[in-house]
Simulated assay, not measured.
Amino acid sequence: MTSWIDQPDALASRLAAWAGQPLVALDTEFIRERTYYPQLALVQLAVPGEILLVDPLVPGMDEALRPLLLDASVTKLMHSASEDLQALLRGCQALPAPLFDTQVAAALCGLGAGLGYQKLVEQVTGVQLAKGETRSDWLRRPLSESQREYAADDVRHLHAVHALLDRELAERGRHDWLRQDAERALRGAADEGDDPWPHLALRSAQTLDREGQARLARLLRWREVQARRSDKPKGWVLDNELAVALARRPPRSLSEFHAVLDRSPKAPRKARGELFEVLSAPLSEQELSLPLADADGGDKARLKALQQAVATRAGELSLPEGLLCSRRHLEALLAGRGWPAALEGWRRELLEPVLSPILAGG
């Protein structure tokens, strides 16, 4: 049975009836095309035999949802939860803990990295789900029957998927791995701390010299602040390509700066004066001491050896290499920036014995 819930009291009543349920399937629909923060547009909840489509646009619905999200006795079943977590935090001021992410669990069970929900459901249940409402406008009301059916499907099969993955994790002794990854995801969603080195996430930063990368890092930090303040997508504030171009050849005057921006169709229209000041201010010694984005990771031969060690370990464990350790994290290790937070826990326990000799060999 699927029910549309547009009254907080009705939701509270249904959730009270679910008391004692150890598992609740959870998904969201949100819109993020024109904003920095995701706009929560729909929340889907399910226990065996019942699905609730909850309208979070109704005043007071966030307060009615919050007790379930915070209930430590109820595990929330979600698939590829990272952006949903941000939407829930923004819309309900709460995160769903404890969390069982079926996409991560599937990867830990050796079923493949980054499996989409439709593909995973088909593998587990044989059911083929429709994809027609993927880019739908979830903020419009009323939702169409097609939208409601699509949304209900997103939680309808999570209990069946969980049952299989839970057994497989138990057989492989990897429940704790999943728990650690879920807790890290929740911490990441709650942490809005600024990335001190945002340039490292852009491959094009590798084409810049040290001063260019320092300017780029400064521009990207400014962009992050502006995007949050205005609740606009980062690319609307300052496009990546333009940011790299400005960092490479900073205009020498305000008039030259305006001329460069006027030639770019994606250039910002507002805050140009502030942006020019940010770009033209002298670089400090601290800024110039930043870690560099390096195409070879600083040492091509050792990077290749590290990648091979990860591939071998991943093969032994029947894990996707990217799930175990990404190239970006190997580059951080090679640059002497220590073990990234994403590798702490079970990953470091598995990798440190095989990576440390290679790192020490430099």
Rank of each mutant, 00 (worst) to 15 (best):
L208G: 00
A190K: 06
G212Y: 01
A227P: 05
R221G: 15
R215N: 09
L208K: 00
W177T: 11
R218E: 06
R223P: 12
A201P: 00
G188A: 14
D181W: 05
A189Y: 03
E224F: 09
A170W: 04
L165D: 11
R215W: 08
Q180F: 01
R218C: 06
L202N: 04
E224M: 08
R210Y: 01
D181P: 06
H199R: 05
A217Y: 03
L178M: 10
R179I: 05
R221D: 06
L186W: 02
E171G: 04
A205K: 00
E211H: 03
L220D: 09
R218K: 13
R179H: 11
W222S: 08
Q180P: 02
A227R: 07
G188L: 08
A227D: 06
A214H: 02
R223K: 11
L220W: 11
R167N: 11
Q206S: 15
D166K: 10
A182I: 02
R210D: 00
W197T: 13
L169R: 06
A189E: 05
R172T: 01
P198K: 07
R223D: 11
L216P: 11
L200E: 04
G193F: 06
E192V: 05
R167T: 15
R203N: 06
L186A: 02
E192A: 12
L200P: 04
E224A: 11
W197I: 03
A214Q: 05
R174H: 09
R167W: 05
D181T: 03
D166N: 15
G173C: 07
A227M: 06
W177R: 12
A205G: 02
Q206W: 02
A163S: 14
E224Y: 10
R167A: 15
T207Q: 14
D191N: 15
A201E: 07
H199S: 08
A182H: 03
E171W: 10
L164V: 13
G212M: 01
E211Y: 01
R210Q: 13
H175K: 08
A217V: 04
A214W: 00
W177P: 11
L208R: 00
G173D: 05
R210S: 01
H162N: 12
R203S: 09
L165C: 11
S204H: 02
L165M: 10
A190M: 02
D194S: 12
E224R: 08
L200N: 04
D181H: 04
D195C: 14
R210G: 00
R187L: 10
R218T: 09
Q226I: 12
R172H: 08
A205F: 00
L186V: 03
R172L: 15
E183D: 14
R203W: 04
A217H: 08
L169A: 06
